[in-house]
Design a protein around this nucleic acid. Sequence first.
DNA 1: CATGCTCTCATCTAATTGTTTGACAACTTC
DNA 2: GAAGTTGTCAAACAATTAGATGAGAGCATG
Lengths: 199, 199
Amino acid sequence: MQGTPKRPRRAPTPEERKQCPERSRRLLLEAAMDEFSEKGFAGARVQDIADRAGLNKQLITYYFGGKEGLYRELGREWLRREATFNDPAVPFEELVARYLREAFDDPRGIRLAIWQALTGEVGDEPREDLSDMRRRQAAGELADDLDPAAVLLMCYAMVSAPATMPHAVRQIFGIEPDSPEFRERWEEQLRRVVRHLAA
Amino acid sequence: MQGTPKRPRRAPTPEERKQCPERSRRLLLEAAMDEFSEKGFAGARVQDIADRAGLNKQLITYYFGGKEGLYRELGREWLRREATFNDPAVPFEELVARYLREAFDDPRGIRLAIWQALTGEVGDEPREDLSDMRRRQAAGELADDLDPAAVLLMCYAMVSAPATMPHAVRQIFGIEPDSPEFRERWEEQLRRVVRHLAA
DNA sequence: CATGCTCTCATCTAATTGTTTGACAACTTC
DNA sequence: GAAGTTGTCAAACAATTAGATGAGAGCATG
């Protein structure tokens, strides 16, 4: 127990030290999104999150009250972003394609959602509004014999598929789920299927 | 450190003690399937698995070499079962419906697979055989403009959807994913969609 | 420049958890 | 029935990990 007399701590980049509080919070959230979406809540390590953010892990307790608080905050944040989609003016096929591209570009949100679903967490999201789907059906964008709710769920499932079952993609297609080839092929097929559901 | 002098251990049901080795293995595998499919590898506790099996947790090491060994064995076992499906004689719509019922009756396999996918485990399953799908397409069970591989993946996704996104089911349908109402409704819609993909 | 507040860090602590150890019962074989 | 093997268990162990503690910088305000 010899006391290394506390080295004066090397400068933590003084100029970017100034506006730290908000910056640190942001860094932690970003790092947490990476870790949690990759390994889930149980699998993620606060040490890894802190390392990734380049900060001390105690800050997780300081800012979010601990690992779980950080996780919850992440969920809340994602929910806020989620809400801002669905443009009634754009055709359904295009809407789905947009969602898909978003999912390809950053699968973390979907992965996080799946993890939450698997671990049985119950976020109290409001009941989904189906009136837009019904309108599209009435406008002929969707066959009359189909249930708008079911179609919506199927679209979710298909958009998420590359993230939730990458192994199946490899097995069936023989290519990597995140390769440009697959992206293109999957989007095209998704569009065709949507068209089939209109006829 | 007073030695409780080892109570003679209450009888572990002597008659069913006889054929234990295989029985214990089986019990552990079954319990492990429950736990792992419910909480994933990181979330599952060997203690819980042992409790559920009514056995001592040390037996997990004894039989499977530890938690991870048990997990792997489970994956291998599932793969064996998976292989025995796909009857070329039965129409595609019916095939999908069967898969779906299987998934509803015991979602553990699907949940386990999703968990493995999420944690990025790479089981080296062989390349999926698409010749049957192509045959069906040629026979008119599938529209010509669709990619058989894509349709197959979509079916997987739709069958798994209730397990992978129960939250979405509640949000969109407003009912429980495992309720008979939903089961029925989802199967019917799945059938209709498959029919749409044939036209 | 002293004082106080905010942000940050290194270290310690307590709890959890997978695995090891050693003992002992059941069954088999001789 | 003695000896050895196999199956089972309880308790100890070692590693991991989330959170607590306390101290020290940065920066504002008096």
